[in-house]
Structures are given as structure tokens and as C-alpha cells.
Write a protein that binds this DNA or RNA. Structure first.
Lengths: 247, 247
DNA sequence: GATTATTTGTTCGTATGTATA
DNA sequence: CTATACATACGAACAAATAAT
């Protein structure tokens, strides 16, 4: 055993594991701004050389950072510093597009699928419909500057919102699609929040690793007359969003 | 093809998939109390026989229930009904003891540790103190009928709340401890919600497996005069609690 | 479009130290 | 004291995705 102290600050055999010290060093580098949000870290090979350890040891340290949502690895591209989580106010007038735009980022929603389905028990109750009544089900992904923040399943009562899919696909915003359907204003009636690991499909839609945590926000929106117009189950990537109430 | 309608209510080839109908039937069974929390469901084979479908179809239905947190499968043991999460309203007058009591369960908070520490940057800002000013730091666990629902780190400005630890330990409630310190009313100023896996210590305090998801709720409480009296970081076991806003 | 280089992801194998039964 | 399990670390090779040529 020799040549163990080639990297300043990396002390071997003193209780602190090598990967933990490397992780701390990288955390400090990010905190001090040496690496900034969106920036690519040096390759695993380069970091292994810098700290004079095996590439596996660097990978263990990077895994710890990824666990905390600080960085994200992308096969074939590199490892990148994640942006600080976006503060997402939840209230009676929650609007994804306005929140993202207010943070200086560009908002867009992609329509992945649309189908007419009979309302399940939960959706029927939320929308005050008979169970089995036809509703429009939309699967969407919502991005801020190309980064997916959330994915949602949305149910809309159907005779009324038959043209919603096309309006949403063209405008990329629930608010604007509602406006195109004659709904100028709407408010949030109720919100319920849970959290759990993402399954494989959800993870792919949000561009996160399977098993990472998502916050599940179930809500109901009503129009100015108090009629329920939208039941919603939105999954937020917990690493990228912080829900804010009041304040 | 024959013998496809042995189970009442299961209609094939009518838009509703078989697995969706089976899922709805099981949801109804759980809702009506046929299967109760903690109880083991019939085996997949038994359910396949009951609905006259292949076991794969039952598995698809059970996967949908597990997705929603209604049941949990355990390899080699069986599939069990999960306890319904406690609806936990988050608002300006959030009181743990009242919420739990309102659900017909007994609330109690245990004080695990108390210490006088210098305020960190975050706590100092929340409490409008100078960084490093002495604050009382409490580590608590909150139970409903012996089941831990949450664990919290609480910071209180110190000249004012020197007797808080003893008051809390004796009364098992933040609200009652505040009353003992002369604070008759307080309201929640702001709330921020994140979610992540629990580490080993947190998991032990909440009596959950390490890595299970916790919702991290950071809040600030103010007294009737608008003075910040408490900064708080509460971890909820995501399987046991559903946060509710408005409605 | 095809090729090549770069980068992360995965899986072997080996060795060592540490905590536990 | 021994045996077992687990975590840590190094080495090598290959697979898979991406970017540049």
C-alpha cells in the first residue's frame, strides 16, 4: 500500500470512507459555484484521476449525490448538476404556466395520449357525474425549459369538452385550452398530496430513475359557476419541485 | 371460448377491460369492508378462480391497486390491505392533536431530545433572529393510537420559551405546551412540502423500513401578534398520511 | 446514413476491513 | 476465537446511449 494521499484532503483509513469524502468534496464544489446548475461534471474517469481512486469509487459518490437530487447522470452524455427545486405554490388559482413563467423558465405541456373512457368511481364523484359516464382522459407531461417537472392524468366531462385535446395539443397549456373551450376562469376546489416511488412508466415520462420519489397531487377544478370541470392527478418529480402553501 | 360469465358483473368485450373490472370489484370489496385494513387478500390463484380469469389478469388488477397504495404485495406471504392514510388538513390553523382526535384516534407526542443550539441560517431567517442566536431544538415523534405518523425537528426562540421542553414532555402536545407558555393562539404562516426516502434514523423513529418515502413539511408558526414563535420540519410517513389543502 | 470516440451502465472477479452471531 | 455476512475498494471487460466526424 502506497501513494494514498495524492489528492489533497482525501485521507484514507480515518473512519471516513473514500466515496463519502469525494461526495462531500463535490457537494462543496457545487455549493461554492464551481459547478453550476445545468453544467456537466467532469467524466467519471476524470474524477477518478482527480481523486486518485478507482472509477467505481467515484460512481459510489455520484450515486450518493444523485440520491439527494443534486446531480443527474445520463448515459452517453454525462453527469449534470440539477437545478434547485422550483417553488410551486398550491392554491385556489394554481396555474402551471404562470408559475413556471414567473420563475423565468419556459413552460410547455405535451399531450401524450387522449381517450374517451367511462368515468371510474373516483372521477365520477369528483366531477359529479354518474359512474361510467363518458369522460375525456388526457395523459400529459409538463416541462420547464425542456426538463419535465410533472406528468398528469386529467379527466374532463365529455359532451362539454370534446375539442379539448386538440386545443391542448396546439396551445400546450390547460389554461389556454380551457379558454379555447369557453372557460375564461377556473379555481381549485380541493387538493390532496401523497408521495411514493415512481414506477417505470412514470419515471420514463419524468426522465427520472425508476424508484425516485414523486409527489402525487390530486385536485379538482371548478368553473366560475362552481361546476366541476376537471379532475386531476399530477405527479411531480420530488427532486425538482417544492410545493408551497400560503406564505 | 366459453364459460366467460361465471362471475356476476364481469362483462367481457364491452370497452371495460377485465382487469379494470376486477380492480373496481376489489376496490368495492375493500370500501364495503369485506376486506379490512391489515387483512390478507385471497391468493392470486383464488382470485383468478373467483373471477374466472387467468392469474395474469388478477395480477394486473392487483398492480393497479398497489399503484394507488390500497394493497401491498409481499413475495411469499400474500397481498394485504393497506390502512387508509389519515387525511391531514394543512392550513392556517393546523393542529396535530385536533386532526388525530377528529379521526377518532388518540394523539400523543413524545419528546426524544431537547437541546439549546445556535440558530442555523434557515431557522434564524424563519424566526427573524440573528444567525447563531440561541434557540431551543426539540426532536419529537407524534403518534395516533401508538402508530407513529410523523417526527419533527422544532426550533423555538429561547429567552421566551425556556420552559417549553418540560411543558411538552408533560402534555404531549405543541398546542398545550404553547398554552402553558402563555401562547393562547397561533397560526401557520407558510408551508413548504418536499418528499424523499427516509434515512435509517428517520425510518426507525417512524417505525417504517429505511428508504420508504417521507413527506417533508417545513412550516413557520406565528403568535397572535404576528411574531414567529416556531420553525418546524416535520416528516410524515407517506404511507400513513395524506396532506389535504382546501376543500 | 455510417463510423468512431466518449461517456455512463452493468457484471464479472479479487481482496480487505468491520461488525455480528 | 471463529465463522459469517456485509461494506468498501480496485481491476477488467463489455454493453448501451450519445455526440461528433
Amino acid at each position: 500500500m502506497e501513494a494514498q494521499a495524492q489528492m489533497p484532503g482525501l485521507v484514507r483509513g480515518e473512519g471516513l470512507t473514500a466515496w463519502r469524502q469525494i461526495a462531500d468534496a463535490l457537494i462543496a464544489d457545487i455549493a461554492t459555484g464551481l459547478y453550476t446548475a445545468g453544467q456537466q461534471l467532469p467524466s467519471e474517469a476524470a474524477l477518478a484521476a482527480r481523486f486518485a481512486v478507482n472509477r467505481h469509487t467515484v460512481r459510489r459518490a455520484l450515486a450518493a449525490l444523485a440520491e439527494g437530487g443534486l446531480v443527474r447522470a445520463s448515459q452517453g452524455r454525462g453527469t449534470f448538476v440539477e437545478a434547485a427545486p422550483l417553488a410551486y405554490p398550491i392554491g385556489p388559482r394554481t396555474r402551471f404556466s404562470e408559475i413556471v413563467a414567473g420563475a423565468g423558465r419556459e413552460a410547455w405541456g405535451d399531450l401524450l395520449a387522449a381517450a374517451t373512457v367511462p368515468a371510474g368511481a373516483e372521477q365520477a364523484e369528483a366531477l359529479a357525474l354518474a359512474p361510467g359516464a363518458p369522460v375525456l382522459e388526457l395523459l400529459t407531461v409538463h416541462r420547464a425549459d425542456e426538463t419535465p417537472l410533472s406528468t398528469a392524468l386529467t379527466w374532463l366531462p365529455l359532451p362539454r369538452f370534446s375539442g379539448f385535446s386538440e386545443a391542448y395539443a396546439a396551445r400546450g397549456s390547460i389554461t389556454r385550452a380551457f379558454a379555447a373551450c369557453g372557460v375564461d376562469d377556473y379555481t381549485r376546489l380541493s387538493t390532496r398530496i401523497r408521495a411514493r416511488p415512481a414506477d417505470a412508466q412514470e419515471a420514463e415520462r419524468l426522465d427520472i430513475a425508476p424508484g425516485r420519489v414523486v409527489m402525487v397531487v390530486s385536485s379538482v377544478n371548478i368553473d366560475a359557476a362552481g361546476v366541476p370541470i376537471q379532475a386531476n392527478r399530477t405527479l411531480f418529480a420530488a427532486d425538482r419541485v417544492e410545493l408551497v402553501i400560503g406564505g
